[in-house]
Simulated assay, not measured.
Amino acid sequence: MATKKVLLVGLGNYTHPQTRHSIGLLLLDYIASQLNLTWSKKKSIHAYTTQSITIYIDPSLSSKQTQTKQSKKEKKAKKKRWDFGSESDEDTERNIINGDTTEQDENNLIGPSLPQNISSDLISPPNTVDPRKFKPKPDPVPLELTLLKPLLLMNHSGKSVSKAVRELGFSHTNIIIIHDDMQREFGKISIKNGGSANGHNGVKSVIDHLKTDEFRRLRIGIGRPPGEINDKTHDIVTDFVLSRVPHNEMETYNSDIFPRCKDELFKASIQTLQ
């Protein structure tokens, strides 16, 4: 299977990397550390990039979903085995108490005898898998990932993205833009396929420079200013998004939100290439 290329772009203000508005930059730093990647400055595209790395993604269900389904099946199978064993033990105990341990009873402890005209070789073991129901596991999908952090201000980040697409040889269908989203609760993430910028100036800049909105985005919910402020004026919103991420929120990002984002990005990368 041929290796496919994907460019992950984190939006933000590089001069304020620890703020809510720069959550795209923080996520890429997390992914780079997970994949042991290093950053280098590319002046021609006004950005920091990592070296390309090829990873292999399982296109089937996520491991968590698979483990959940397997555990249910195992529990069901164990329950059946337990029920069968309980019935056998009761039958055995009843036969012993009644002094009825004949040779036929001893055979019954192993299993029912077969009719004389049927060969045991023709009987499939109880756990044999029906080949008609067997589905081979799909091959892992190789992805060549490159990470990019624009060095321009958020409102001009599209210039960096368009230069990267041309110089690094990417199609707009093979990039995923990562950005903050005030319209979503803190920690809520979603993939968007194309469409308007929905008021996000960084995304608007990318659309303007690529001359298309046909690219994928990972939106990370940062929430809105606390309810007690009850003020959504421009100054209040600006202070909120440009404020440093609190320590407790940063812990939640690293332990829960960023791992989920990474999984969603890898899934979206496969879908982008289909």
Results as ranks from 00 to 15, higher is better:
Phe258Gly: 08
Leu242Trp: 01
Gly202Val: 03
Asp263Phe: 11
Cys261Met: 00
Thr238Val: 13
Gly195His: 03
Arg224Asp: 07
Val241Ile: 12
Lys192Phe: 09
Leu242Pro: 02
Asp235Ser: 13
Leu242Phe: 06
Asp263Ser: 11
Asn198Cys: 06
Gly194Val: 05
Arg260Thr: 10
Pro259Val: 00
Lys211Ser: 10
Glu214Pro: 01
His234Thr: 10
Ser255Met: 13
Leu210Pro: 03
Arg217Trp: 06
Arg260Glu: 04
Arg224Lys: 15
Ile191Pro: 02
Val203Ala: 01
Asn193Pro: 04
Gly199Cys: 07
Ile220Phe: 14
Val237Ala: 10
Leu218Phe: 06
Lys267Phe: 03
Glu214Gln: 09
Ser196Cys: 06
Asn254His: 14
Met250Ala: 08
Ser255Ala: 13
Gly194Gln: 05
Gly227Gln: 08
Asp263Pro: 07
Lys204Ser: 11
Arg217Ser: 03
Phe240Lys: 01
Asp213Thr: 07
Asp235Lys: 12
Ser205Gly: 12
Leu210Gln: 05
Asp239Cys: 06
Thr272His: 05
Gly194Tyr: 02
Lys267Arg: 15
Gly194Ala: 03
Val241Trp: 08
Thr238Arg: 06
Phe266Leu: 14
Pro225Lys: 01
Asn198Asp: 11
Asn248Leu: 08
Glu228Gln: 08
Lys262Gly: 04
Thr272Lys: 02
Lys267Met: 03
Lys211Glu: 14
Thr238Met: 11
Leu242Asp: 03
Ile257Glu: 03
Ala268Trp: 06
Glu251Gly: 07
Ile257Ala: 05
Ser269His: 01
Asp256Pro: 09
Thr233His: 10
Glu249Thr: 14
Lys211Arg: 11
His209Thr: 12
Arg217Ile: 05
